[in-house]
Design a protein around this nucleic acid. Structure first.
Lengths: 301, 301
DNA sequence: GCTTGCCATCTGATTTTCTGATACCTCGCG
DNA sequence: CGCGAGGTATCAGAAAATCAGATGGCAAGC
């Protein structure tokens, strides 16, 4: 009979969702591949829903799987918070943190982390600034901001800062469900170059884009440029073009039945790195230091 | 080594926290008492914190235990939500729900439930009214409000309504940590009658209070009356008096080191029942019906 | 001083979960 | 067009976690 869901199942499922391969998830958790398979099969059986589409080179989340992943991630994060708290009783630290972040990081990466931090440190305020990458760097160097969160892989010389990688996020092809480019299960950059391409211009999307296109001796067939994530989603979902973006900002987004699918790309594309920077030589104020430690630990596993 | 925390452990721990006895938790989950004991011991070992104080007649949460219970409850609720969602895909129901609730229910019981409901039905608005018990009843009978949430044990003739008990909450003695009345591990109403008593006057606290005092042929030594929950907490925490209130509104609340402890009472005191009412003969609009089903299911286990 | 009702501990049985081997599939390539 | 590489599913036996039931210790009430 359908027995109870286990935290282990959620952990294994989440790892599989994050790596896109059962076998890689198994390796990262130091268990056998069949353990992952079993856990996911049990979950699917219990939920009565297929969580992954099995592809020849791995798996990808279904719409239901993606939704369930959000829940699973939330549960695992909540557990992590629950385990952290009992030791450190004195979370009555007060003050404010001056912190700057770039557009996509602020919109997609930080909010849940801030919510969790706030639950532990209710009396710490955020003095939060939404800046471009160069301005974040300058503000941190000048001491105007204590911390900066940005796409670290865009920073030219990260050794100018104290820095820590918080998350690596795989870049994938996005296309409307049923788009012809999805017929080949592992599209290459050459395949994608034939499609109209939609370029996101925020957070130096143009530069990082150009970087991996030219590395492969190709260039995309750019149909639109936009600095609006929602606009981009709409365009992709309606089949006006495809794009390459990181999992961090991916949502299946089935508004009015239009769905976006994400696919791994054959060619090697560097992962996006989200990272934290601070002034190398300065000592941080207590609240900022607390956030720094919190972010590093919360993203640690 | 301290292995991983299990959902089962959280379930057992939560049941123990809610019943106040390992053996009763075991009975309610249809497992042996040693299973509960083991799960809690493993948790305590893993956290490095004592979660319960063992008393001769059961257990009571420590401050850390209470805090961890909030987390555990949240995790279990999140899981329940995760399991509910994949089946019902049509959460794009729109509309508004006219609902009324009484003071303490609105402040302590409904908010987390509303948050969970909103996550499933983002397009449903609440038209929420804060009324006294009689006005809630009248509004539901007249059709002004579709649903009412109140202390059902205060309703005189609940058969006038469609109704459902959402939660039963044990009433306990509250006293400042270290208060002399806590020296006996099972204080009786007679013991409490000797202490200055602080009476909460909201939600007909006076009537329900009188009910179980006179049932036992006693009367409290009322020192203060207040209609402010925060004021009451402060008075109790500082040792100005004791009170009897339900677990629903209990918080250990250790502001500036002043802690409130809760103790089961020897004499039989009826539990507080929070319940949902609706007009008996009317059919509810879809949004209200969705909320009704959600509440009943969410409180079901 | 005895009974009662708790929780903690122990032991063997049971159930779950894991590993490792194997089957089977798709894709890319010679 | 067959074949190897790399993916998931399945299976059986081994390992580990969990359980039930008996037992012991402890405090409270009669």
């Amino acid at each position: 009979m359908a027995s109870d869901v286990t935290l282990r199942q959620l952990r294994y499922f989440a790892a599989a969702a994050e790596t896109g391969q059962f076998s890689m998830a198994a390796a990262s958790l130091f268990v056998s591949q069949s353990a992952i398979t079993n856990a996911v099969l049990l979950l699917e059986d219990r939920l009565g829903v297929k969580l992954f589409d099995r592809k020849p080179h791995g798996v990808s989340l279904t719409a239901e799987g993606h939704s369930f992943y959000q829940h699973a991630r939330h549960i695992l994060d909540s557990l992590q918070d629950a385990l952290r708290e009992p030791r450190f009783r004195i979370n009555d630290l007060r003050g404010a943190i001056r912190i700057a972040a770039t557009y996509s990081v602020l919109g997609y990466f930080l909010p849940p982390l801030f919510a969790r931090f706030r639950a532990n440190y209710p009396d710490i305020d955020f003095d939060l600034h939404d800046l471009g990458r160069r301005k974040v760097e300058a503000a941190v160097l000048s001491g105007d901001q204590e911390l900066g969160v940005l796409i670290l892989s865009n920073v030219e010389d990260r050794e100018r800062f104290g820095h820590h990688v918080l998350m690596r996020s795989r870049r994938q092809l996005w296309a409307a469900a049923g788009h012809p480019v999805l017929e080949q299960s592992y599209p290459s950059l050459a395949d994608i170059a034939r499609q109209p391409y939609i370029l996101l211009t925020v957070d130096e999307g143009e530069e990082s884009n150009r970087r991996y296109w030219t590395d492969n001796g190709l260039s995309p067939n750019i149909a639109f440029r936009t600095n609006g994530m929602e606009a981009l989603r709409g365009l992709v979902a309606h089949g006006f073009g495809v794009t390459i973006l990181s999992d961090m900002v991916y949502r299946p987004w089935s508004l009015e039945g239009k769905k976006i699918e994400a696919r791994p790309i054959l060619d090697a594309i560097p992962h996006l790195e989200v990272g934290l920077i601070w002034a190398k030589d300065a000592t941080l104020a207590e609240p900022a230091e607390a956030l720094r430690q919190f972010l590093i630990q919360a993203c640690g596993n």
